[in-house]
Structure formats: C-alpha cells, structure tokens
Design a protein around this nucleic acid. Structure first.
Length: 544
RNA sequence: GCGGGCGUAGUUCAAUGGUAGAACGGCAGCCUUCCAAGCUGCACACGAGGGUUCGAUUCCCUUCGCCCGCUCCA
C-alpha cells in the first residue's frame, strides 16, 4: 500500500471536514480570521460526545473528583501569581537582517547570530523598535479603557481550579487525595497558528488538578512511600502512594481514555520530558502524543507525534503561589496526619520536618523571597505538619479538546476504492469513529421513498430512537447512496425498514416475524436482522 | 514576525483583458426491493479593497486567508 503524502492526507481531511460540516474557517464570509475555527453540525456533535466521555470518566464515575466551571475572565492577579503576566510581557526586537528575534532587555548579552563577536545591540543589522509580545489576549473590564481596567482572557483553565481550591474543598466535602475537573475555553495569541485546528488561538481544554499528599505526609501516615514497580497501570490507588505513583497512575488512566474513545495504542506516544525541558517547578511531565499526518519524523522515519495532553507533577507550586500572592492560606487540614504525627518518634519527626522544610525553603527562595524570610516561612510550614496541615501537591492531566477532535478525525479517516461492473473505479471515504464519540449514532432509512408504508414505519422507528441518542433520518436517493453518506459522516449503524419489516421475515431464525429491520455496520457493510423492539437496547450497549 | 507558494460554485478542477465551464456533491420531482443506478429540472463561485484600462476574474499594489520552510509555543 502506498502511503499518501501527509500533505495530501491533511488536504483531504480539511476538505472533507468542510464538505461534511465538521469544521469551517471562522468568519469565512469576511475572509476568515487566522487561528480560529468553527465546528459545524457534525463537528459540534463529535466534540460534545468527546467532552461528555471525558466528563463521565473523570467526574461522574469517580468518587474522588468534583467538577468546576469557572469564568474566562478572572482577576489579573491570578495571572501574576501563575507567572503568565511576567513571562509574556517581554518586549522583543526583530532583526530584519539576520531574521533573529531577541528580548529587548538582553540585546547587550546575546551575540549576533551572523557576527558572534558582537552583541546584538552593536551589530549592523536593521532592527525593529521593541514590541510587546504578550501571548495573553487583553481586554478591559468596564467601559473605561485604562491600565487599571486591563484583564486577560484565560490562557489556560487550570488557574481557576487553584483559585477556587478552598471553595471546592469546603463544599464538595472531599479530602486529599481528590481532584477538581474543568472543561472550558482558553485563549492564546499564538505567533503562528498552524496545522489546521491543532494550534488555534481560541481552544478548549479538559483539565484535572488532582491534589495529593506530599511524600513526607504519606511517610508520616503510612511509614513509607510505595515506589512504582514495573510498567503499566499501577492499579487501584493506595494510601501509601507518593507523587511518582500518582503520576504514573494518571498517565495510564489517560492512555486508557484515549484508547476507549478509539485511538489505538500504536498511534500514541508516551513522551517523558527530559530534565532540561521540565518547567522549574515540575518534577515530571509526560506528554501523550498522537501521530498526526503532519507530525515530523524521527531518524528512523517514524512519526514523532504531536501533543494531545500533558500530565505534569507540579509539586505544590501553584497553590503556594496563590497563597503568597493572595495572602489566603491554601493548606488543608488532615486529621490522619495529625494523629499519625503524634505517634512518630522524635527522630522520625525531625527527619520529616527537615525534608519538608528544605523543600519549602527551596521553593520560597526560587520565588524571590529573601533567604532569612524564606527560612522563617519554611519553618512555619514544617511546623504545620504536627498540626496536620500542609499544602497539597498536584498532578495535572491537561488535554486539548480540539487537538483530540482532529486526532479522532485523522484516525477515523479511511478510503475504500471499488471498481464496479463497468470498470469504473470509485473511492469512498469512511470515517471509522468509535461509536462512543461518533456524531450520529444511527441512521434510520426507509428502503424506498415512494412507498408510504415504509416511510411511515421508518418515521416511527426514528421517533423512538431519537429521544435516546443522536439519530438521523434520510429518505433521499437510493439506499446505497444513503449508506455512503452515513459512512462519510462516520455513523456506525444504519437501520433500514424494508418490505420484510411490514410483511414478516421470509426465512431464517426470525421467519414469519414482523417488525424486524436490517442493521448495517459501517466498517464492513455487514448486515443482520434485529427486531425493532430490541433495537434501543442493542444500540445503547454499543455506544456507551 | 521573516521568506516562498497559492486564493474561481459546497468540494476537486478548467478557461479568459470583453464579467466564467465541468465533474462530483446539494435540492425538487419521477423511478428504484440493500451499498454513491437512471431521467428531468433548479440553485450555487472569480477572498476583500484600490490602481492601470473604454473594459479587470485575468495585469499591478495593498490587505485577508490557506499551505510549506524558519521563528514562537509559558
């Protein structure tokens, strides 16, 4: 089989998405707007099903996760605490001669790429004025547009979870370890949106912040922290898990999710960030990559994959930042810790105290707190252990919805070329979505349009199914044409009402029985016969 | 942001300094007893703005968008 060039494949996917109503360019009648995309009728259903699947797995089916839906615009102080304001407000200078881009405050320190003997500020290159490069979208709250009214569209959903941590903890009656989940829009003013919807300026995230006990607390309660042994899923969570096992657990849980919505394991890559790539506060980050057609290839010619999700072990950085910036305590009280601590011998208490103290002190000093103050604050934090108090650590599985949608479409895309009796060859497209996420679950079709009894019966079947799942009715054109239309929409099942539905089966196990329909499978065209009465159960078992 | 390429029906493509054709798709009707059958009819496009010209979809400029390579991606 000749593998289609990645470009050709992406072009086919893009035009199919437009043609069938999955994805359109935003504002297309005005020429479009770079980095923004709309979902059409089928795309909206697909996206909804994907988000529902995530929410069900992450929130409804778990005792230890609570949901949240926060605003897009929040206090600008949140973005100071998170570091987004500082990181993004650097003025940059472009050099028109060497095409380089440099931070305006570092032109005396960076050598010119073309003449390394000189610094950028001294080289002859023609440079632009310093320009502000902030990847956060800015707006103003209230009608007065001055600096005091500046606010930002959130560049990630995570921070709202940290900001509301205490409220959720209080009202959900959860105890650490537990998580807070959120699905919502986020905005980044990307320099170059690329690869169709993969890097958009407005996008949607599905994020979980899962709060766990620091390892010192686990040790105090359980004696020691269990270490990961071997590969694969570590199984049901245990009280003696430290951050490493929790991190591993969530990586495996998330991989299972992707497989459950139809991405085969071999299309995914589990990439462990190297120490150099890690954010300074992160202990480990695993990216789950999907091998998109536009992915770069490695030395062996294998697709390297592009990020769908990152699962980061972020220590207690985020809650600590918000504690420092807001002045509000972000710690929790843990009855088990207080009880366990009292039973530890002095040497053990001292040892755990010391380790917790060192970690806290390290964080505070890196955050710019003066050494003396840092020591004092860290000692206070460590004293809290005896009272059962600490700031939870967090494991953050953070997924991009739109990237997953694109991966699902790319993965579902398949072509079948058939040559008919006249020698005319024709290529049909089938989107092989997992039934759980397919936009339309079932299409109901009367075999013929000009037989009122068939149409009436088909309408009847349609009306019983549509209340329970996304059902589509179609009586236009030949039956084969309608099957083909559904194949292109990715509908896993078609139900056809024919004469045997009305008159009873002529032969087979259901001989003589009325009210049966043809059920046709999308992926291989296989057909079987089902009684109408059993249809709903049959379908529901397959779309869950 | 830089460099290169490209913008014609929904999609894929033609042609043209004198305002555009096709295929597929769509819609309506007829027909049709299971995988894009057939017949009839209908609708739909020169990305936007400016310039040159008697006249611009065609030439020029600007802009917007898409693709590729850099750059960026907390």
């Amino acid at each position: 089989m000749v593998e289609p060039k990645s470009n050709e494949l992406m072009e086919k996917i893009v035009s199919l998405c437009k043609r069938r109503g999955f994805i359109y360019p935003s504002s297309e009648i005005y020429g479009g707007i770079n980095g923004f995309w709309d979902y059409g009728p089928l795309g909206a259903e697909l996206k909804r099903h994907v988000k529902d699947a995530w929410w069900k797995d992450m929130v409804r089916l778990r005792d230890d996760v609570a949901g949240l839906e926060a605003t897009i615009i929040m206090s600008p102080k949140i973005w100071q605490a998170s570091g987004h304001v500082d990181t993004f407000s650097d003025p940059m200078i472009d050099c028109k001669t060497c095409k380089g881009r440099f931070r305006a405050d570092q032109t005396d320190e960076i050598p010119c790429p073309q003449r390394p003997s000189k610094m950028v500020s001294q080289c002859q290159g023609e440079k632009t004025e310093p320009r502000a490069f902030n990847l956060m979208f800015q707006t103003y709250v209230g009608p007065v547009q001055d600096d005091s009214a500046v606010a930002y569209l959130r560049p990630e959903t995570a921070q709202a979870i940290f900001a509301q941590f205490k409220n959720v903890l209080e009202t959900s009656r959860q105890k650490v370890p537990f998580g807070i989940a959120q699905i919502g829009k986020a905005f980044r003013n990307e320099v170059t949106p690329r690869n169709y919807t993969f890097r958009s300026r407005e996008f949607e995230q599905m994020e979980l912040e899962y709060f766990i006990r620091p390892d010192e607390v686990v040790e105090a309660i359980c004696g020691r922290v269990a270490k990961p042994s071997g590969n694969g899923h570590p199984g049901e969570p245990q009280p003696n898990w430290g951050w490493e096992l929790w991190h591993k657990y969530w990586v495996e849980e998330r991989l299972r999710f992707y497989e459950a919505v139809g991405l085969p394991r071999h299309t995914l890559v589990e990439y462990w960030q190297t120490p150099a790539e890690l954010a300074h506060y992160a202990r480990a980050t695993v990216d789950i990559l999907y091998k998109f057609p536009f992915s770069k290839r490695d030395e062996k010619g294998e697709l390297k994959g592009e990020e769908l999700e990152g699962i980061a072990a972020r220590s207690d950085f985020d809650l600590s930042q918000h504690e420092r910036f807001s002045g509000k305590p972000m710690g929790v009280f843990d009855e088990e810790l207080r009880a366990a601590w009292a039973k530890l011998d002095k040497a053990r208490q001292d040892e755990l105290w010391k380790r917790y103290y060192e970690t806290r002190k390290g964080y505070l000093e890196r955050s710019g707190v003066a050494p003396e103050q840092a020591s004092k604050d860290a000692a206070e934090d460590a004293d809290g252990l005896a009272k059962g108090q600490y700031i939870p650590h967090v494991i953050e599985p953070s997924a991009g919805v739109d990237r997953l949608i694109l991966a699902l479409i790319a993965d579902a895309y398949s072509e079948v070329t058939e040559t008919d009796a006249k020698g005319k060859s024709e290529t049909r497209v089938i989107l092989k979505f997992h039934p759980r996420v397919a936009p339309i679950k079932v299409a109901v079709l009367p075999l013929l349009k000009n037989k009122p009894e068939l149409v009436a019966k088909a309408q009847e079947v349609f009306n019983t199914l549509r209340a329970e799942m996304n059902t589509f009715y179609d009586d236009g054109g030949s039956i084969g044409r309608r099957y083909a239309r559904q194949d292109e929409a990715g509908t896993p099942f078609c139900v056809t009402v024919d004469f045997e539905t009305l008159e009873g089966m002529k032969e087979g196990a259901l001989a003589g029985q009325k009210d049966t329909v043809t059920l046709r499978y999308r992926d291989d065209g296989r057909q079987e016969r089902l009684p109408i009465g059993g249809l709903l159960d049959w379908l529901q078992a397959r779309i869950r």
